[in-house]
């Protein structure tokens, strides 16, 4: 009982002691880097539509995302993306490029354990929950939509 009290007091003391960083520089960095990544996306999309006017809007978006994923995956491979991430934080995590980075980085990291047990098994250690939550929540939405459509 006494231990619990002491631990609580200690935790409180420690959280007061933790150095407070000024949030504004990182917030600003994440803002402009995130904005630039979105701009690149828009640019790629417009360019695709310009070159291939027959593309439907939806396929153009799909191509755009694939291009962004490719770029992010490549930058991860050559060891640049983690430096962007260190600088921008959320700015490079939230865009689809962050998703790509979180799949590529464990694959590269665990390459040393072989192709099957390294690359393939560890590929989703970070991005797995994104796909699981995404698919499960979309199924919930679909189910609700289906039930409503019955009436």
């Amino acid at each position: 009982m006494e231990d619990k009290k002491r631990n609580e007091a200690y935790n409180k003391y420690v959280s007061a002691k933790i150095p407070k960083t000024r949030p504004w520089p990182t917030l600003f960095n994440s803002f402009w880097v995130g904005g630039v990544i979105c701009l690149i996306g828009q640019g790629v999309n417009d360019l695709l539509l310009l070159i291939f006017p027959s593309l439907s809007e939806q396929s153009a978006w799909a191509y755009t995302l694939i291009v962004l994923i490719f770029i992010a995956s490549f930058l991860t491979g050559i060891g640049v993306y983690d430096q962007i991430g260190k600088f921008a934080g959320g700015g490079s995590i939230v865009p689809i490029t962050g998703f790509s980075n979180s799949i590529t980085s464990p694959s590269i990291e665990f390459k040393s354990e072989g192709i099957v047990y390294g690359i393939c098994v560890k590929m989703f250690t970070i991005a797995g929950p994104v796909i699981v939550f995404g698919v499960v929540s979309s199924m919930v939405v679909g189910l609700i939509y289906w039930i409503i459509s019955l009436f």
Partner: peptide, 16 residues
């Protein structure tokens, strides 16, 4: 695009 994209990413950083 820049402003909204940046804002969404900033929200992420704020959460972090």
């Amino acid at each position: 695009v820049f402003l909204i994209g940046g804002f969404v990413c900033m929200l992420g950083e704020l959460l972090i």
